[in-house]
């Protein structure tokens, strides 16, 4: 696979969990450490690479991010930053969760970083009951225990129900 970096026009096919195929330029795919490792080993670009954990909608978003970052030169950091915030701006929590999972699976550090930060920024002012639902956490406190933990952290609950 000596040609993997020299030949920028080479393409490969990624297949989402719901069966949709995406034709991707190799230098775009290289944003993903997972794909990079696969290409460095023995995967032929003729193969279709299945991504069983990522649905087509999420994969389209991920590839949009990768394309922007692969095409931009390193001198355009400011432009990339504004792309990143625009990219995540109106995304709901479901999209963000899928994105962070995909970035984690495909090992795209930059995307994982901005998606995790966006989730943190979104939940930081939410009441804990809502956070519990968002993360599917079972409340294993007795009402007494929960009241005690809350009382210990009273200062953090100012303005919260």
């Amino acid at each position: 696979m000596a040609s993997s970096i020299e030949n920028n026009n080479e393409k490969l096919t990624l297949k989402s969990s719901d069966g949709e195929e995406f034709l991707v330029e190799k230098h775009v795919a290289l944003q993903s450490t997972l794909l990079q490792n696969m290409l460095d080993s023995d995967c032929s670009s003729a193969d279709v690479i299945p991504l069983p954990k990522i649905d087509a909608r999420t994969l389209a978003l991920v590839l949009g991010y990768c394309k922007k970052h692969a095409d931009a030169s390193s001198s355009k950091q400011g432009e990339l930053n504004s792309f990143d915030s625009e990219f995540l701006k109106d995304m709901d929590m479901g999209a963000l969760f899928n994105l962070v999972l995909a970035a984690n699976f495909m090992e795209i550090k930059g995307l994982l970083d901005i998606a995790a930060q966006k989730i943190a920024d979104t939940i930081k002012d939410k009441p804990h009951q809502e956070v519990r639902e968002i993360f599917h956490v079972e409340n294993d406190y007795t009402p007494e225990e929960e009241a005690a933990v809350r009382e210990e952290n009273r200062w953090a609950f100012e303005g919260f129900p």
Binding site: H128, V131, E138
Partner: peptide
């Protein structure tokens, strides 16, 4: 936020 989220679960 973290101190509030101590109340999420054990």
């Amino acid at each position: 936020s973290l101190c509030r989220f101590k109340s999420v679960s054990n």
